[in-house]
Computed example of a mutant assay.
Amino acid sequence: MAALVATLPLQLVCQLIPTNLPTKDVKAFGKTEKFVLNFPQPQTPTIPTIPDGYVPYPDIGVAYKTYYEPVLWKVAKNRCTAEGGNLAIIDSMKKFEYVSRQLKPERVTHVGIHSLFDQDEWVSVKTGLPLTTIPWAPGEPNGDSRCAMVKYEKSGLCNIECSQIVGDFICEIPIPEGYKMPEERFEDIFGRITAN
């Protein structure tokens, strides 16, 4: 490119410079000219992050945020959607184990599985597709209740009446591609910081 610019007349070279760059008027020899102050710098790629309050679980590709605010299932679903996620889709024992660690005793916690459209078909709030591996507690689902939740003292999901039971809730977002877990840092007895 430099060789090309060197062989072009000055008027053509000036046409190669973008017009939206910052300029400054400089007066010299009784004439005012515009000079480009600087060229834009290349953009530094941004490192993907996770919103505050979410706990990442890279091995399952999601991050969870627990709200200890008893609300109805539909309110919980709408709150998660409003912040760019969905109620947690608990479709494996591993996800159930992660979520169970965040529960409070004697409380129920809403998750993103329901059978609102067909009593026999439990679907994900994220995709609307049927789920084939739901970690139900023994004897569940039972009755006509159409929304799933987790109870502190249960070993799997239970079904509840969507519009009558208030509970805490857990939102889920996907972990962004390229996300790196922050390094754990420790201070030794001499006050030195080390990464683990």
Rank of each mutant, 00 (worst) to 15 (best):
A2C: 08
L4R: 07
T7Q: 10
P9Y: 04
P9H: 01
L10V: 05
L10A: 10
L10Q: 09
Q11H: 08
V13F: 01
C14W: 05
L16D: 00
L16S: 03
I17T: 01
I17K: 00
I17R: 01
P18T: 05
L21C: 03
T23F: 02
D25Y: 05
A28F: 06
K31V: 15
K34M: 02
F35G: 00
P40D: 00
P42F: 04
T44K: 07
T46M: 03
P48M: 10
T49P: 01
T49G: 03
D52W: 01
I60P: 02
V62H: 00
A63Q: 00
K65E: 06
K65G: 06
T66A: 13
P70C: 07
V71T: 00
V71L: 01
L72Y: 12
W73E: 06
A76H: 09
A76K: 06
C80L: 09
T81P: 08
A82H: 02
G84T: 03
N86S: 11
L87M: 09
I89K: 01
I89M: 09
S92F: 04
M93L: 05
M93N: 07
K95Y: 02
F96L: 15
R101Q: 14
P105Y: 06
V108M: 04
G112P: 11
G112K: 07
F117Y: 10
D118E: 08
Q119D: 12
V123I: 14
V123T: 14
V125M: 06
G128F: 03
P130S: 10
P130V: 13
L131C: 11
T133I: 14
W136G: 02
G139A: 15
G139K: 14
A148K: 06
V150P: 06
K151A: 13
Y152K: 05
E153V: 13
G156W: 03
I160F: 15
I160G: 11
I160S: 09
S163I: 12
I165H: 08
G167N: 12
I175Y: 06
G178P: 02
K180S: 14
M181S: 15
M181L: 15
E183W: 11
R185D: 00
G191L: 09
I193D: 05
I193K: 08
N196Y: 10
